[in-house]
Design a protein around this nucleic acid. Structure first.
Lengths: 186, 186
DNA sequence: CTTGTCTATGCAACTCGTTGCATAGCAGGA
DNA sequence: TCCTGCTATGCAACGAGTTGCATAGACAAG
């Protein structure tokens, strides 16, 4: 599993609490990995007992205290050895594709709304990614010279952008197919 | 969960045994959903007790007997109601993206091999999909007129092709980024 | 005749991930 | 004052998915 490693990467980029990690996983890390706060707390606890991360109690004003985690030496070497071992190319799990094939045995026209809804979600995500790209990498506010970490983050973000663009185009293709099918079923 | 529904769709397209389903999930259905035989057998058993599928013992010659499953009335209505309820747009889980961001804290050059390996796998998958498309949809052997089911299957396959093409292009982008990074770290 | 491979089904144990719920401090508004 | 909402952490139970192992008939190769 890679959640531990995703957490290590995130903590290396910036130390933080479980709560903060959960919010990062809703944002930038969430572009390519998702996790709920329960999962994160559980894994953080295990990583702590394994000595992968260090904890520091941080008293706060105006809000509850937090535990700030940072990567320990053991965690860094665990990440390093994971980086050096090969992983299986991921296999997709796409509910919507199951639905599209299933629509042949039901009413294909009823799917149009659902596909349009997904189209909208992906359009919004694309806009969100592009805004992030302008802010951090290509806009006037972006740093002139990017370090290795930033260049790699940008490459990952470009992947997210390419994914959303591809998905949007495909969903339009699916919509065309559904519309072309519709008249046949009167 | 959608494994039950993926099985229903597959059985509607063609009835079959758990073993046959497992092989379909390695092939065409596997383009957008994966499952091992243990998972399939377990779910099939539950679907049988729920009355979603009918079983028929089929004696065979030259090989063990099999249980052929087909979709029952209850299964059809279960699929239908699932098709009519909205699903969450999927969130991606991309180990490789975690590795790429993590590489900033290790040796980015060490990732080049891994990315090239993934590039090869996706190139092979693309070739496999394109061969399937020619065979079933666009080649001289393909049927002249496609029914609704075939048109929707083709649309899903086009999605797989678009996904592989996008991934291949992105991995080349990542490779360029890694190569450009390399000289900086001597 | 033994070994390996393919078809065919299944159990048991485990890990991963989700859902529901609980607690608690603090802030702001009705 | 009470209610809502945000920060912050966590338990318990369940469901989904993986891994290892077991069984068994048939066939082909050595």
């Amino acid at each position: 599993m890679a959640l531990e490693h995703a957490i290590l990467v995130s903590l290396l980029e910036k130390p933080g609490s479980g709560y903060e990690l959960a919010r990062r996983f809703e944002r930038s890390i969430g572009y390519f990995w998702t996790a709920t706060h329960q999962q994160i707390y559980r894994v953080l606890k295990r990583m702590e007992t394994d000595g992968w991360v260090d904890v520091r109690e941080v008293p706060q004003q105006g809000r509850p205290d937090k535990k700030e985690y940072s990567v320990a030496v053991l965690g860094r070497s665990a990440l390093s050895s994971w980086l050096h071992e090969p992983i299986e190319p991921e296999s997709v799990r796409h509910d919507l594709a199951v639905k599209i094939r299933g629509a042949a045995f039901d009413d294909p026209a009823a799917l149009i709304h659902e596909v349009e809804r997904h189209h909208q979600v992906h359009t919004d995500r694309l806009a969100h990614y592009l805004a992030g790209e302008r802010r951090d990498f290509t806009g006037p506010e972006a740093p002139a010279a990017l370090d290795a970490g930033q260049q790699l983050q940008h490459a990952v973000l470009r992947g997210g952008i390419a994914y959303e663009r591809m998905t949007i185009t495909w969903l339009e293709d699916v919509l065309d197919t559904l519309h072309a099918l519709k008249p046949e079923r009167t």
